[in-house]
């Protein structure tokens, strides 16, 4: 139950879960501590969240493994071991070999490199796009807003997976960067709609009104008050988008619509491993495992970041991590649920 204990009164302490005991309003006698920079504060809060920290460590390790392992791994992904076809994992081939004698470890690391880079780039592109478009549409309303909503509706009817599949013959044989760009261009709409919905509510907040009445320019209000107050949402969404982009990339590559041979990504590896998943499981399991672990880690980190960034969230300054984690999880779930629900309502 998330009952606010302090249910009486006019909301003097209403913002703080857990009642008056956890409130620490600045009392007149408290020694003023030095101003901690925003970034430091966020880092400190994030560090208190064990799951998120583990997630971050996993991501860092995955990046390190993907980009550093070629330096010391026994085989490169282009080498073929003609003595060993389809051998199971061993001392020399850590993840076994493929049917033409490729070293699975080297291949998986190469695929991971590609998938990670693509995920990061797409997450960045699509989140920035959605923040800009969504906040603009939400703040100004009118035709900008209507046009955007129409685009989003269209995307619901025409999933980006379908568009990219159709477009895939066009970038066959071209650089994978085009693929990245297209992926980014077609995955901002849903987040933009959520951002727009939040902008609608933020626009009516008294501090935004206050800024307007003091003569602040609209774009400055967007940059100073609206976007920072959605930071938690944007960060969660950026991470979720990274995860989604990796899944989309691997999915398209799985069908041969994404990264093209001879280049490999986790998707192409999983695709070629699927047929023999039962007989030669290492071909399938290793790339799948890395994919799932990465996406999972990204999602967990997204949640942790939300908590760290929001000064009102529970996890920030509490000693009891366990309880804090519970509370932030609720808050996060609410944020999640509200977002699409909001979007849905706006849609109507």
């Amino acid at each position: 139950m998330t009952v606010t204990i302090d249910s009486d009164g006019s909301g003097e302490h209403a913002n703080t879960p857990g009642g008056s005991a956890s409130v620490s309003p600045v009392d007149a006698g408290a020694p003023g501590d030095l101003r901690t920079s925003r970034a430091k504060l966020v880092v400190r809060r994030f560090a208190r969240n064990r799951n998120a920290l583990i997630g971050l460590v996993v991501i860092v390790l995955l990046y390190a493994a993907a980009f550093l392992s070629p330096l010391f791994a026994p085989w490169s992904y282009t080498e073929l071991d003609y003595d060993n076809f389809l051998v199971s994992p061993s001392g020399s081939h850590w993840f076994g070999t493929s049917k033409v004698g490729e070293d699975m470890f080297a291949l998986v690391m190469r695929g991971l490199q590609k998938s990670l880079t693509i995920g990061l780039l797409v997450g960045l592109i699509s989140t920035s796009l959605s923040a800009i478009v969504g906040a603009t549409a939400g703040y100004f309303g009118g035709w900008v807003d209507r046009a955007m909503m129409w685009l989003v509706d269209l995307l619901l009817v025409l999933p980006s997976f379908l568009i990219l599949a159709i477009l895939s013959p066009a970038f066959k044989g071209k650089t994978w960067l085009i693929f990245v760009l297209l992926l980014g261009l077609f995955s901002w709409m849903i987040t933009a709609r959520i951002v727009r919905g939040m902008t609608f509510t933020l626009r009516e907040r008294e501090y935004v009104k206050a800024a307007r009445f003091m003569g602040q320019a609209p774009w400055r209000i967007i940059v100073k008050h609206i976007v920072p107050n959605m930071a938690s949402l944007l960060i969660i969404d950026a991470t979720v988008n990274v995860g989604a982009a990796v899944i989309a990339e691997t999915g398209l590559s799985y069908f041969g619509f994404g990264v093209q041979p001879p280049d490999v990504s986790l998707g192409t590896l999983i695709a070629s491993g699927t047929e023999s998943a039962q007989t030669f499981p290492w071909l399938f399991l290793f790339p799948s495992m890395f994919l799932v672990v990465f996406v999972l880690a990204v999602n967990v980190v997204g949640d942790g970041l939300r908590d760290a960034i929001d000064p009102n969230s529970a996890g920030g300054r509490r000693k009891d991590r366990r309880k804090a984690r519970k509370e932030y999880q609720d808050a996060k779930d609410k944020a999640r649920a509200n977002a699409p629900a909001l979007a849905g309502k706006e849609a109507s």
Binding site: G243, I247, T250, G251, Y254, I270, A271, T274, A277, Q278, P281, F284, S288, L291, V292, V295, L296, N299, V300, Q329
Partner: peptide, 25 residues
């Protein structure tokens, strides 16, 4: 339930599918 949904949502269909096949075997 939370862990279950997190893991499932992080796992693409083309991984779940073959895994379920193996499970069915």
């Amino acid at each position: 339930a939370t862990v279950f949904s997190f893991v499932i949502l992080s796992t693409p269909v083309f991984v779940i599918g073959p895994l379920l096949k193996t499970g069915a075997l």
